[in-house]
Amino acid sequence: MITLTGRFDTPADAAALLALHGGPEALAAVPTLRGVRRDASGGIRAAFSPRGTFVPMPFALTVSVERASATGAQLAVRATRGQTAVDVQLRLGFEPSTSGTTVSWAADVSVRGTGATVGQRVVRDLVYAAIDEILRDTAAVA
């Protein structure tokens, strides 16, 4: 398992960030997400193609929000592509700042399948970049 942490500032306030949890419609505005919908168990499904990679690496994404409050949220994310599966336990913290919100995040990441074998020397950086990117993008549409 890989543990990653990051933080960034967004002009949105916590309420706006939490509102994203309300409906897939808002998430459809995130440029790297396609086909955002809610599945039978209430999770969010989408196709995610991170921008940072030099070749498109689209993943099928399933996100379930396990907990959400004004101070933070906890999400379980599963991303699959071919015979690669990435499971992420993502904890978000929201802290009001003068210009909006400081979002801090911590992720426990498990990479399985082909990606674990072939990607072992790059996977940490790629997953970090992908999480950072999608969180910033998502915050930006809040």
């Binding site: 030099f54 070749v55 498109p56 690496m57 592509r81 071919g82 015979q83 690669t84 082909t114 072939v118």
Partner: peptide, 19 residues
């Protein structure tokens, strides 16, 4: 994407890491 020599890119595609 650009295919130059393909000596890495095509391997990534075989392994279904990229699309």
């Amino acid at each position: 994407v650009v295919l130059a020599g393909g000596q890495t890119l095509l391997n990534m595609l075989k392994l279904d890491l990229a699309r």
